[in-house]
């Protein structure tokens, strides 16, 4: 069985320590969390955690079972093998160094990047997409001189309807 990235969606009661319990359960059993996204759902008492982890099918099944044991966990779904959409977001600051200014403006036009803040000194961009799209954007941003960046974990929804 090959190792690959799995996107796991976990519905939980929004209780103190719930994230620590989930992270501790995985860490204590020797599994690594590659990326993580947590927030409340439309109900404040219920949160959704979307987590990326790497393993083969048997490992992932074990992770799901271990998570199901937790009292605050309501539901666990592996979104990897079902039709689902995945998104990440980055916020990037590019400083307008004299030699880069024109290059940066041209790239923003070409790639239709969304500008959140722009002044004389720098620009902050918001870019969303799935993992390959974000990785591509990062490759394009790199020569422009990224001065700061923050990247979310993956959020995902299945297409079951």
């Amino acid at each position: 069985m090959e190792n690959k990235e799995h996107i796991i969606s976990i519905l939980v009661h929004n209780k103190p320590d719930v994230l620590a319990r989930i992270a501790g359960t995985l860490g204590g059993k020797g599994y690594n969390i590659e990326s993580l996204c947590v927030n409340t759902t439309t109900k404040y008492e219920i949160s959704k955690i979307v987590m990326a982890t790497i393993g083969n099918q048997a490992t992932i099944a074990r992770i799901e079972n271990q998570l199901q044991r937790l009292v605050d966990v309501i539901q666990v779904d592996d979104l990897t093998n079902v039709d689902s959409i995945h998104r990440e977001m980055i916020l990037v600051r590019l400083n307008f160094a004299e030699d880069k200014k024109e290059q940066i403006k041209k790239a923003i036009d070409t790639y239709k990047w969304k500008v959140i803040v722009s002044n004389d000194a720098f620009v902050i961009l918001e870019i969303t997409g799935d993992k390959p799209q974000i990785d591509l954007a990062l490759a394009r941003l790199e020569p422009l001189g990224v001065t700061d960046i923050t990247r979310t974990g993956i959020v995902a929804l299945d297409l079951k309807g």
């Binding site: 048997a58 099944a61 074990r62 079972n65 271990q66 199901q68 044991r69």
Partner: peptide, 8 residues
């Protein structure tokens, strides 16, 4: 009773 005991 515990699914995590199965196939572990």
């Amino acid at each position: 009773i515990d699914p995590s005991s199965i196939n572990r």
